[in-house]
Design a protein around this nucleic acid. Structure first.
Lengths: 215, 215
DNA sequence: ATAAAAATTTAGACAAAACTAAAAATTAAT
DNA sequence: ATTAATTTTTAGTTTTGTCTAAATTTTTAT
């Protein structure tokens, strides 16, 4: 697979988690910052290679082959992110772009040795699960902070948006994976939350609460 | 720079160490397993970008820009090789191809943090020096085993040929960086050496002796 | 010094992956 | 149920890096 093909497969994978019926051409184009016509061209090629099943105008989904390939790319991406944060002392908001490049390094021995070196981590620095050597992904119960019940204790276990801007905001607010959350009050007008984070009271907008996973 | 451009710059760098007057089109084509006409095309492009100085039919050499770029690529390659051997437990004959991919990862922060993580190593697993952040390469006195004097103690400090075949042969012969060498006898007919390696007597062909650096 | 051989460059073509503009199919709206 | 809007595909180009074949320059050998 070329790097370009891998990027398409990865994007189709992520989109198909949200819309399992079939992924739109335009949605793919949006994620890859390319044009719909380019996507159509590539879908034909990926279909030839039995990585996606594609019917004109009907959207696209991954074949078994394509799904496994996608999971291996995601595995590589997330393992490299762990390496960058745990071993090279990068901050969690700095690793995405570098991992986007590292995920295309081909060697399977490399990624399995890296996995062992890191101690077979189950989650990446943003709380996303890391597929194992076979592509199996551990399923985790989680909910958005915006869906949390009042006056119950939760732990932050992940972020939905892992953009640098959002992560830097969390750093500023001293919110990290493992932080404890208790929702004190929910403002019905705009869904703003009053939350006790690590025993400190904070006001948290609905947009933020919609991008924090808790348990 | 594209990956292809980087590969050309790197090959020109390595060839210019052997023939400093100017590197031949055919030599580049040979190293990159491509055709001379493709090389000519690329030399024009690299010349446009002020990475090489190139005059039709007269061979090519790196500009200051090109030289620094080449050294940075070599730096990345060798640091990744150290990582693969020291941290991921690869054997020294397995790392070249993987490092050929890793050397094209762009982030400067990455490579400097990797350098620090590895403890600022001066040499890669084959004994080749690692350029520092500025591109400075430590100069080392070394000679080939084939040029060694009789009955003097030497240490193995590097290999000239770092092909997997040669390195595996050295593993089999229990020769590694740091091994001690004393040449007992030189057969004048074919230059075969009788050598004491780590206090054990061995017969070593001229071809082998021409690919081992000692000090 | 000139002819033959070797090396290099030019010219024209191709594949991959992108693009623009136009056409076709699907979906939404009256 | 048509029409309008949106989405998707097709057709034709472009760019990058490669190729082959032919032409040119340089080097080697007589």
């Amino acid at each position: 697979m070329t790097i370009s093909e891998e990027n398409y497969i990865k994007v189709i994978y992520h989109l198909s988690l949200v819309s399992p019926k079939g992924v739109n051409t335009n949605a793919i184009a949006g994620m890859l910052e390319t044009k719909a016509s380019s996507v159509t061209d590539m879908l034909k090629k990926l279909s030839e290679k039995d990585l996606v099943s594609y019917q004109k105008y009907q959207g696209v989904s991954l074949t078994e082959n394509g799904l496994l390939s996608a999971k291996m790319i995601v595995r590589k991406h997330r393992l490299w992110e762990v390496f960058l944060v745990e071993k090279l002392a990068f901050n969690w908001d700095e690793v995405h772009e570098i991992a986007e490049e590292l995920e295309h390094i081909k060697s399977e021995a490399l990624i399995n040795k890296l996995d062992a070196f890191l101690g077979f981590p189950a989650f990446d620095p943003h709380g996303d699960p890391i597929p194992n050597e076979k592509g199996v992904i551990q399923k985790v119960n989680k909910l958005l902070l915006s869906e949390a019940e009042l006056n119950r204790e939760y732990f932050c276990i992940g972020v939905k948006d892992s953009s640098s801007e959002f992560l830097k905001y969390l750093d500023k607010q001293k919110i990290a994976l493992g932080s404890t959350f208790k929702v004190i009050e929910k403002e019905s007008f705009d869904d703003t939350l009053t939350v006790e984070v690590n025993s400190q009271e904070k006001i948290i907008s609905n947009k933020i609460a919609n991008n924090l996973y808790v348990q």
